[in-house]
Amino acid sequence: MTTVREIIAIPMGDAAGIGPEITVKSLAKKELYELCKPLVVGDANIIRKAIEVTGVNLNVNVINAPAEGAYEYGTIDLLDLANIDMEAFEPGQVSASNGQASFAYIKRSVELAMADEVKALATTPINKESLKAGNVPYIGHTEMLEDLGGTPDPLTMFQVNGMRIFFLTRHVSVAEAITQMTKERVHDYLIRCDKALQRLGVENRKLAVAGLNPHAGEGGLFGNEEVVEIKPGVEAAKADGIDAYGPVPADSVFFQALNGKYDAVLSLYHDQGHIAAKMTDFHRTISITNGLPFLRTSVDHGTAFDIAWKNIASEVSMYECIKLAAEYAPKFTRESL
């Protein structure tokens, strides 16, 4: 079976961070070119400097449009926004100009995706302090993509070693998360999770909802959230045709998903799913932003200014990020289902 090689845009991230290094290290692996057509959106001088620092044997091919790329191993095809002043550049430092530049790479990549010139984005780290210093009106990737892609409340999914995890709540306190665990929200999210998996090409989708309390509450003995809110939400989703299960005790549901019993788990709060994913394999935990008009995967780590430009940053997460985008891109459907 021939692999469909789609064009994957890779905005290089904050120039002062590890993004350029892990990008060139990843693109030094021949197998990626057998899976996709990687296209870096960034600054040519920075990418050349990253090649020099890391010692990888790669050339840079500056192009004006994705269709001009060669996409051959040994050459990085690059859309050069030429927006880094190399005389003023300082590795590992917060910089207003780098914050503005990193946003420009993302904006250009989204424009290409919206115009159907690339099939997916595989994003590298950006720095919140640099964005703020540069007066970029977004705190991070998700907020940028939500606005640029015209998608309110995009849905985050983690994938690691075949296990997929969605999040019912994310950046709120545990106390606030519990108040948000309503049957209506569980119902709505299961429908959205099923749709997200469908757009990724997953067939015969089985979704499990993690429990909140020990042993998923033991029928109300250890808390009644499962009885009053979570299970009714699951039952409502099942009535709408979703193949949903749960609540399943959180101490076993992720292990079961990792071993193929479920296609995805709906985690009830931030750390519940994050711990399960990152204990499975920290470096290979990849984030997918669902609900956008295009596919987006991302590393789940930051700019690591403390180790940037020292050739010690691991590219494993970036490699897996591009690889996952390449895996889903041929099956991903852009239209609303």
Rank of each mutant, 00 (worst) to 15 (best):
F294C: 01
S26P: 01
A304C: 10
T54I: 04
V174R: 04
I139G: 14
N45C: 00
T156M: 15
K238G: 01
L79R: 10
E111I: 10
A9I: 04
M163G: 07
F89L: 09
S287T: 15
S298F: 12
P154K: 12
I10H: 02
I191H: 10
D306W: 14
F167D: 01
K261P: 00
D263V: 04
A175C: 04
L81T: 10
A277H: 09
F167E: 02
G74D: 06
E229F: 06
S336F: 12
P20L: 06
G55Y: 12
H171T: 12
H274N: 00
V228G: 00
A16M: 07
T156S: 13
L190V: 03
K261S: 02
N213R: 15
R164L: 09
F305P: 13
A113N: 13
E143K: 10
A236T: 02
G219Q: 05
M12C: 00
H283Y: 12
K310S: 07
I307T: 07
V253H: 00
A329T: 10
Y73S: 12
A208M: 09
G13Q: 00
L337N: 08
K323A: 11
G150L: 09
P247I: 03
V316Y: 01
A104T: 11
Q100V: 04
S97G: 06
C321E: 03
T75R: 05
L78Y: 14
A257S: 13
P247G: 02
T124P: 00
G162W: 08
A304G: 08
V60Y: 06
F167N: 01
M1F: 09
G219N: 11
I242N: 09
E320T: 06
C36E: 00
I286S: 11
I178T: 05
I63A: 10
D14E: 15
Q93G: 00
D251N: 06
L258K: 14
T142I: 07
G92E: 09
E34P: 00
E229N: 15
T54F: 04
A237P: 11
S173A: 12
I106W: 11
A82N: 15
A50D: 08
